[in-house]
Nucleic acid binder design. Structure first.
Length: 114
RNA sequence: CAAGAUCGUCAGGCAGUCGCCCCUCAGACACUGCCCAACACUCAAGAAUCAGGUGUUAGGUAGUGUCUGAGGGGAGGAAAGUCCGGGCUGCGCAGGAUACAACAGUCGCUAACGGCGACCGCACGUAAAAGUGUAGGGAAAGUGCCACAGAAACAAUACUACCCUGCACAGGUCUGCAAUUUGAUAAUUACAGACCUGUGCAGGGAAAAGCUGAAAAGAGUGAGGUAAGAGCUCACAGCUGAGCUUGGUGACAAGUUCAGGAGGUAAACCCUGUUGGCAGCAAGGGGUUGGCUCGCUUAAAGCUAUCCGCUAGAGUCUUCCAGGAACCGCUCGAGCCUAUCAGCAAUGAUAUGCCCAGAUAGAUGGCUGCUCAACGACAGAACCCGGCUUAUCGAUGGUCUUGCUAA
């Protein structure tokens, strides 16, 4: 799990990012993000709807794995960027770690390019 | 040891590494409050001193925040479904009646329950046993319903078939008499009477039978009775209800006396009894100033649907302070462990010890290695408890019954 500094702390702010931010789509998830240069650290949220899995245990596991993959600096989100990862597929819960890191790295790198 | 039944317990382990949430302690820094010392100014005047006030600097102390370090704690038996019950909070009081809803054997347990335990009744189960289930008030207060099929679905009649009597017709048998034929016996025909059979009509009887259906009139045996029969009558047995006796706290059981003739359905209405005020942690939580509107016994407002009773305030705007997507409620509780005692048990009492998640885009984890039969089922707290129901890979302990073997 990541520190409170890197989490979102307001419910309405998620809606703001969804509405105003930019959007990247990939096979298992999509990224909505917005840049706020004032902040010194990035912010990250993971959204897993009940459509993905009805079991809370599975949804929790997906969320934790994605947080951990970002935290352990396999990929670097630039400071001041707020990102929401919306997951589409239940198979993220049991995907091998190397593959998860690789796919997530591709998505995060596309933020830097734009 | 085997088979059957039943009651529990656990819910992978270890190590490495990188993290998250809460609490406690220590240190550093920042801010705020208070205390104290020195100095300056002020009070303050012609001058000096003391007390008071203000500011600066240094120190102490308390609180808050950030960072660092150390220590402690961190999902479940169902955390789930949200089906019952309670605590807690608000609604001024929580009072009554009706409506509405839920429940229904007895005794006990519990904060309470629609839950639990023991027992009773009924049903099931086994070769026998151990056991299992139970949607358990009233159908003899009344109303309704009983599809399809069937003669008929609770009302006694009708229907099919049955029995008895009478009349008519047809046939048969017997008897009597007449006519014809014959020598005679005899034969044929007609008529009358009796009996039998069949058909039709009329009157009466009504028990058994009628292939259906979930269910069929609901009284089993014997005797009497009758044209034949029939609870038509009687006796006995069984059932139901009431009374009495004995046993039991009680449901009830056993016995006995009297009465009765009754289909099912109450998860149809209904009747009887018991219980329930409404909303829910998005509950709810501060002081203060001044107005305006309505009302003050013909009660505005109110706590549900209606009524009664009860209360003199209620609603709304606004000033200032406090607060600032915050904080409190928020986790010490009908709490947990162990032992003893009471009780068949559910459960209760006493004693020692313990503190055991509290997040808020929401912590309790990610990865790697070893290990185990097994990558480990079902599954993630959200105010808190007691139950119920549903999901669940497996591992393991006890108890009971029966059988076999050995001592």
């Amino acid at each position: 799990m990541i520190s409170k500094h890197n989490r979102f702390n307001r419910r309405n702010h998620v809606r703001y990012v969804y509405r105003k931010g930019q959007f990247i789509r990939s096979k298992y998830w999509s990224l909505n993000y917005i840049s706020k240069p004032v902040d010194k650290s990035y912010k990250l949220a993971v959204v897993v709807s009940k459509k993905v899995s009805k079991r809370a245990v599975v949804r929790n596991r997906i969320r934790r794995r994605l947080f951990e993959s970002v935290r352990q600096s396999h990929q670097v989100i630039p400071p001041g960027v707020e990102v929401i990862i919306t997951v589409y597929d239940e198979s993220v819960a049991n995907m091998p770690q190397a593959e998860l890191d690789k796919l997530l790295g591709v998505s995060v790198d596309r933020i830097r390019l734009q």
